[in-house]
Amino acid sequence: MSHYRFDAEKSFLAKLYWDTTGALQTQPDPTRAPRIGVVRDRTAPWASEGWLHADADTFTDHRASDYVVSRRKFQTQFWFGCYETDGQHDYEIRAAGVDDGHHQWKYTSHRLDVSRNGYLGVYSTPEEPGHDVLANGSMIWRLERLPTDKLLPGRAYGPIRLVSLHGKSVKRLNEDGFPYLNENSGGEGWLFIEIIQVGVARP
């Protein structure tokens, strides 16, 4: 029977970019591959928070005081916890930190998952990093074409397909001006992954 084994040595921190070209790249080009970040929005009555934003940042309200809770896209770093089974590698993905250590950031260790309608967001979870993902029914992801055994800090890799546990390739869905990531609908795209650190046991 197959089982997942957590491998801290192959787990890593990275910055993520969304690429619609599918072309091989060696460095992030914001004009072709905008940064993916987590958003916080306290200006909306439903307090829209935690969705992934996958385009240029037209979301952040730069007019608001830095100390007022408002609309913001965080320059998010993500943790990829590596699990191995039968020679294949899958990942539990969690929000880690942000580039600027912003005081409003509160999503560290929130897990990447999908809503009932297939939208990608980060959700709080009681499970510790490295837990038994099968026993807990956790969302894990496959990164198609990522050279798991050869990752180097400071290097970037792409194009990479992000595939959910449901076997669906993630797409970008523009809805009401917001560039969501969704496993059901949207335009085709790929991840571009910039490695920050390898051998990271937790976010």
Rank of each mutant, 00 (worst) to 15 (best):
V200N: 04
G177V: 06
R71V: 10
F6Q: 02
Y180V: 01
D90V: 15
L52S: 05
G22S: 11
A47G: 11
G101W: 00
S164P: 13
R35N: 02
Y180T: 07
S185E: 14
R172L: 09
F74C: 06
G199A: 03
G199P: 09
D19E: 02
L16T: 07
G121D: 06
G137Q: 04
P147G: 03
P45D: 06
A156Q: 14
V98E: 02
W190H: 15
F6D: 04
P153W: 12
V39K: 01
T60L: 08
I193C: 07
W51F: 15
V163I: 15
I196D: 07
S169T: 15
K73W: 03
G87T: 05
A96C: 02
Q197V: 05
F12A: 01
V39E: 04
T125L: 13
G158S: 09
R116C: 06
N136H: 14
P179M: 11
P28D: 01
V114D: 00
R35K: 12
H102T: 11
G22H: 08
D86P: 00
E194K: 13
R63I: 07
E127T: 09
H102W: 03
H131L: 05
L120E: 01
V38F: 11
D41Q: 07
Y83L: 06
P30L: 02
A47V: 13
D132C: 02
R40F: 08
R111S: 09
R142G: 03
R32E: 07
H166V: 02
A44Y: 07
W51V: 02
H103F: 09
A14K: 07
D100K: 08
Y123V: 12
Q197Y: 12
A156S: 15
T43P: 00
H110W: 14
L162Q: 00
D132K: 06
S109P: 00
E84Y: 10
P45N: 09
G186S: 04
V98D: 04
E175S: 15
W79Y: 13
L52V: 11
S185N: 14
S70R: 11
E84F: 09
P179K: 12
D132Y: 03
G189R: 04
R63M: 11
T43R: 14
I93S: 00
M139D: 13
K106M: 06
R32Y: 02
R40K: 15
R35W: 08
R202C: 11
Y119E: 04
T20E: 13
L120N: 05
Q197R: 12
L191V: 02
Y17N: 03
L13C: 06
P203I: 01
S70Y: 00
I93L: 05
I193F: 10
R111F: 03
F192K: 00
M1Q: 13
D57L: 07
Y83I: 05
R5T: 14
L16V: 08
G97Y: 04
L112G: 08
G154F: 08
F74V: 08
D7L: 13
S169L: 06
D149E: 14
A23K: 15
S109G: 05
V133Y: 10
G186K: 06
P45V: 08
R32M: 10
W46K: 15
S124V: 09
R42V: 13
I140C: 10
V38K: 10
V39M: 04
P129W: 05
Q104I: 00
